[in-house]
Computed example of a mutant assay.
Amino acid sequence: MALSAGDTIPDVTVMTMGKDGPAPAQSGALLGSGTVVLFGVPGAFTPACSDQHLPGYLALAEQLKSKGVDKVACIAVNDAFVLDAWGEARGTGDAIEFLADGNGEFAKAAGLELDGSGFGLGTRFQRFAAIIKDGKVTDIGVEDVPTNVDVSSAEAVLAKL
Rank of each mutant, 00 (worst) to 15 (best):
E88T: 10
G116D: 04
V41W: 00
A44I: 11
A48K: 01
F125Y: 10
L58G: 08
K67S: 12
D134R: 03
D150F: 06
V77N: 08
G28C: 07
Q63V: 07
G104Y: 10
D11N: 14
T147H: 11
A76I: 06
L31K: 07
D51E: 15
D70R: 05
K108S: 07
S33W: 00
K136V: 15
F119D: 05
T8I: 10
S153D: 08
A95H: 09
A59V: 02
Q126E: 12
L99C: 09
K71F: 00
G141W: 04
T46C: 07
P42W: 01
E105G: 12
G102R: 12
L60D: 06
V137D: 02
A89Y: 00
A25C: 11
D139W: 14
P10T: 11
L38P: 07
D139P: 03
K133S: 12
E105C: 06
M17Y: 14
D51C: 11
T46A: 04
S117L: 01
F98E: 03
T46I: 09
H53K: 03
D79C: 13
G18L: 05
E143S: 14
G116T: 02
V82H: 04
R90F: 11
M15Q: 14
G102C: 12
G135R: 02
P47L: 02
D51R: 14
V157E: 01
G40Y: 07
I140Q: 13
L31N: 06
D134A: 00
L30P: 09
N103M: 12
K133Y: 05
E62N: 08
I140M: 11
L54T: 15
A89V: 01
H53D: 05
F128V: 11
A5P: 01
G87A: 12
V72W: 02
D150T: 15
A29L: 13
D94N: 14
F128A: 13
D134V: 01
R127H: 05
G40S: 10
V145T: 15
L114D: 00
P22G: 06
F128G: 14
D11L: 08
G34L: 08
L161Y: 03
G93K: 13
L60R: 11
R90S: 15
G21A: 05
T13S: 09
D150C: 11
A110C: 13
G32H: 00
F119A: 13
G28F: 05
E143P: 13
V137T: 10
V142C: 05
